[in-house]
């Protein structure tokens, strides 16, 4: 039987092989939700989905696309904003 604190699904379950060739259940924290566009809410590509401690070790250029508003807006919304700023 799992321990009482492991019965709820707040932690995700990962089965791992031990060095002795047995499989054990490990309990790990869940990943944060996917990054979304600030204007339209579309899921952003090119933004990794990791816990903050792991995000520290990823380089800045791997955490977001290298364009203005990269990692904040989707490319469609970014184009809209640029076009609007030109036409004013």
């Amino acid at each position: 039987m799992p321990a009482g604190r492991h019965k709820s699904r707040t932690l995700r379950r990962v089965s791992r092989k031990t060095p002795g060739a047995k499989t054990t259940l490990q309990y790990k924290k869940r990943k944060p939700s996917k990054a979304k566009c600030g204007m339209c809410g579309a899921v952003l590509s090119g933004v990794p989905r990791e816990r903050p401690k792991k995000m520290q070790n990823i380089s800045k250029t791997k955490k977001r696309p290298e364009r203005p508003f990269g990692g904040v807006l989707c490319p469609k919304c970014m184009r809209k904003i640029i076009k609007e700023s030109i036409r004013e």
Binding site: E66, R67, P68, P75, M78, R79, I82, K83, S85, I86
Partner: peptide, 11 residues
């Protein structure tokens, strides 16, 4: 022109 795509977008 103004570029809309890529790392030079907005330039």
């Amino acid at each position: 022109c103004v570029k809309l795509a890529g790392r030079d977008a907005g330039k």
